[in-house]
Design a protein around this nucleic acid. Sequence first.
DNA 1: TTAGGGTTAG
Length: 614
Amino acid sequence: MLKMMIRTTTAATSSSCYCWSSRGMNCLHSNSTFLVFVNNYFAFFHSHPSKPIKSTRTQLEQPKRDLPKITNVEDAFNVFDRMLQMRPLPSVVRFNKILGQVAKLKHYSAVISLYNQMGVSRIGHDVCTLTILINSYCHLNQMGFSLSVLGKFFKLGLEPNVFTFNTLINGFLRENRVAEAAGIFNKIIAGGNCQPNVVTYGTLVKGFCMKGNNRAAIQLLRKMEEGACKPDLVVYSTIIDSLCKDTLVDDALNLFSEMMCKGIAPNVITYTSLIHGVCKLGEWKEATRLLNDMVSKNIFPDVFTFSVLVDTLCKGGMVGEAEGVVEMMIERDIQPDTVTYNSLMDGFCLRGEMSKARKVFKLTLSKGSMVNVVSYNTLINGYCKHKMMDEAMMLLREMTCKGLVPNVVTYNTLVDGCCKEGKLGDAQQLFSEMQACGQLPNVQTYAILLDGLCKNRQLSTAIQLFKEMEGKKLDADIVIYNILIEGLCLAGKIESARVLFRGLSSKGLQPNVRTYTIMINGLCIGGRTSEAEKLLTEMEEKGCPPNDCTYNVIIRGFINNNETVRVTGLIQQMVERGFSANAWTTELIVDLLSKDHLTIMANIEIAIGKNNCS
DNA sequence: TTAGGGTTAG
């Protein structure tokens, strides 16, 4: 229906008109206006080419002896082979160009292979060659090899430059090795031969953002503003994106305005981050404004921008609209890529429309895009969540046959699916298989399996697994302890659960609202209602206020223990805080009413009246 | 010729 409306509007809309006439569309939500914008944008795109027309070479300019254009690794290998046949051999600079282009294509293993061939053919290398090599190892998460390349500099008497140092800083930050990254930074400062530049600072800013430390990132930005090395578009965009990811869109927009006031023009990356931020919050009107704004500045949305739109529409339950955007992209020659299709596929999976999800999977291939591990994981997740484990397992085998390596996400998804189906044996088998295939289980894998074991009343196996996890030096987080405390409570071992709960601070962990709620539930199950009530007060005092779930749990606990007198106060507290009883608690309250507990009737009625929980 | 920013999965 909506798609039909969009199409109808397309025909009636002038190509340069962004202020869409709302005739006949008043009934639609604001996101529909946003979609109409998307369609209008496409119309505009065709009458105003997005890419500037390339200037033709003047007669005075000398033609460049450029290398043939390399668009894939095969081209690179061919050109490289031809260069090896030339006599005299081309300069190292020309070989560097090939390596650099392959690195730009993100084929880092191929870069290493080409570098090794250079060695065999006795082609020398310079600072640039080694920096490209370090960068490749960094992207392959092999910092050990990167550092061994650094050793080659000294062996060959070469001096690393600021490109080398920046590459190393980036590599360490990618592996979360902040101290070592800082060490390199200090080395630049102390060395005196080269100075940190805007890329060095930009890399550090990204490092702070990756750690979720926006405050430190902004502090560094301010220092740059005061100093000689002024922040550029990349530094601002990095922080804007990080703020958007943390849903701090207003702060991001303020920084965006500040950046423009300083004369720094945004680009499609800056706008895509902002659009992502507002779409995640469902602010479609704001998304439309930003899209209008960017196009008015001749900045055009690209595949990233459209993928963001498709993904957020799907996550917001508007799969039909997302499908419409993809169709529009195809019709208007902006080719959706694997990421776009994966997002759309996930949208169908979320709705349980697995046959449509499967169609998108096939469509990805027919449109010339590759399905990747994420494509398989998305589809596997869809099947798992809808209890279609056979189909999910078939996909695991299929992806392996196609040469794709299932990763920790693949296995975690499948292990979770098996656990939720009560197939603990299959889950444990997958757990062994992943390790045999070289995929190391992470904390999340253990959490999934521990939860499955606890919920299926296999506490002793769970404890054994927990010990195994500790032995592997994986740091158990609060999620793991929540699972164990809940498992102990479920097994009636309330005292053990309480001991584990009280020992959390000595492990440097803070109980969260879920931890308290699980413990309160356990204490109520064990008939220790006064302790449960004390814990309710304690959590408040420790700055972790109870939520609706906590109240529902404690109210149920009191009713089940026939302590109806205290129920009145608890219901009142819950209602005052704007929470309401869920269906299960309501049932118990109704049951209480039928027993004619008139004294608590008034408050109970308030609670039931506000019931909107499932 | 080499370095930093935006999209998908558990």
